[in-house]
Deep mutational scan, measured.
Amino acid sequence: SYYEILDVPRSASADDIKKAYRRKALQWHPDKNPDNKEFAEKKFKEVAEAYEVLSDKHKREIYDR
């Protein structure tokens, strides 16, 4: 789930989600993982997609249904 990707509970606040996104984006940024760039790019995209949905109140409500 998007919550698992960002490592936050379903009850996470918008601020918690933003902090988790920043932490995970740094962790999986391809430039930070030169030895495993392809895998890092995949993870980085997953993190971005999760944040896009969970950071938008309307999209998150739909996702949580």
Rank of each mutant, 00 (worst) to 15 (best):
I5T: 07
D7G: 15
S11F: 13
V53D: 01
E41D: 10
E49N: 08
K43D: 02
K18G: 09
P9V: 07
K24N: 04
I17D: 00
Y63S: 03
K18I: 13
V47H: 01
S1Q: 08
D56P: 01
S13G: 07
N33P: 04
Y3T: 01
R60P: 02
A50Y: 00
P30A: 07
P9R: 08
D15Q: 09
R10Y: 12
V47Q: 02
D56K: 04
K43L: 08
Y63H: 04
I5L: 10
Q27T: 06
L6K: 00
D64C: 03
Q27K: 09
E41M: 11
K18T: 14
E38S: 12
N36R: 12
E41C: 11
R60N: 03
P30F: 04
Y21Q: 03
K43M: 15
R23V: 15
E61V: 06
V8L: 12
A12M: 01
A12V: 04
Y2M: 05
D31Q: 08
Y3N: 01
D35L: 14
V47P: 00
P9M: 07
D64K: 01
K19V: 12
Y2Q: 01
K19H: 12
D7A: 07
A12Q: 00
V8G: 01
E38A: 14
K59F: 06
E52K: 08
P34N: 08
Y3D: 00
N33H: 15
D64Y: 02
A50D: 00
H29Q: 10
K19Q: 14
H58P: 05
A48C: 14
E46M: 10
A40R: 06
E61G: 08
A40H: 05
K59V: 04
P30K: 05
Y51R: 01
D35W: 09
K43A: 07
H58Q: 14
K45E: 09
K37A: 12
A12H: 01
S11H: 14
F44N: 04
K45P: 01
P34A: 10
V8D: 00
Q27H: 09
P34I: 12
D31I: 10
D31Y: 04
H58R: 14
K24E: 05
D31G: 08
K42H: 09
Y3I: 00
S13N: 12
K59E: 05
K18V: 12
R60E: 03
E4C: 14
K57Y: 10
Y63W: 03
E4L: 08
A25E: 11
Y21V: 04
R65K: 14
N33K: 04
K57N: 12
I62F: 09
A40W: 07
I17H: 00
E52P: 01
Y3P: 00
H58V: 14
E61P: 04
A50P: 00
W28R: 01
K43Q: 07
H29D: 15
Y21T: 03
Q27I: 10
F39S: 06
L6F: 02
I62C: 12
A50E: 00
S13C: 07
K59T: 08
V47D: 00
A40T: 04
I62R: 08
Y2V: 03
A20Y: 01
E52I: 10
N33F: 14
Q27W: 06
E41G: 07
K42W: 08
K19A: 15
S11C: 15
N33W: 15
R22F: 13
A40C: 08
E38C: 08
I5Y: 05
K24I: 08
Q27S: 05
K32F: 14
A14K: 08
A25R: 14
E41V: 10
E61Q: 09
D16F: 06
K57S: 13
D15I: 10
V53M: 05
K43T: 06
P9G: 09
H58K: 14
R22G: 12
R10S: 11
E49R: 07
Y21P: 00
Y63G: 03
E49L: 11
L26N: 13
V53A: 05
R10H: 13
Q27Y: 11
I62E: 15
D16Y: 04
A25I: 14
K43N: 07
D16Q: 10
A48Y: 13
K18M: 14
A48V: 15
D56Q: 05
I62N: 10
E61N: 07
K19G: 07
K45S: 11
S11Q: 12
I62D: 11
K42V: 10
E61R: 06
S1E: 08
W28G: 02
K59D: 04
F39G: 06
D64E: 04
D56F: 02
E41Q: 11
N36A: 09
P9L: 08
E46F: 04
F44C: 07
H29W: 08
R60Q: 04
D56A: 03
L6D: 00
F44R: 07
K24H: 05
K42S: 10
A48L: 15
K24C: 08
A50C: 01
Y3Q: 00
D35H: 14
D31V: 05
S13Y: 03
D16C: 11
D16H: 07
K24R: 06
D56I: 04
V53K: 03
S13M: 05
I62A: 14
K24A: 12
A40P: 02
V53Q: 05
D16W: 05
Y51E: 02
I62P: 03
N36V: 06
E52L: 11
H29R: 08
K32S: 15
E41H: 09
K18E: 15
L26P: 03
V8W: 00
V8Q: 03
Y51K: 01
E46V: 04
D31K: 09
K19W: 08
A12S: 06
K24V: 06
D7Y: 03
D31R: 07
Y21G: 03
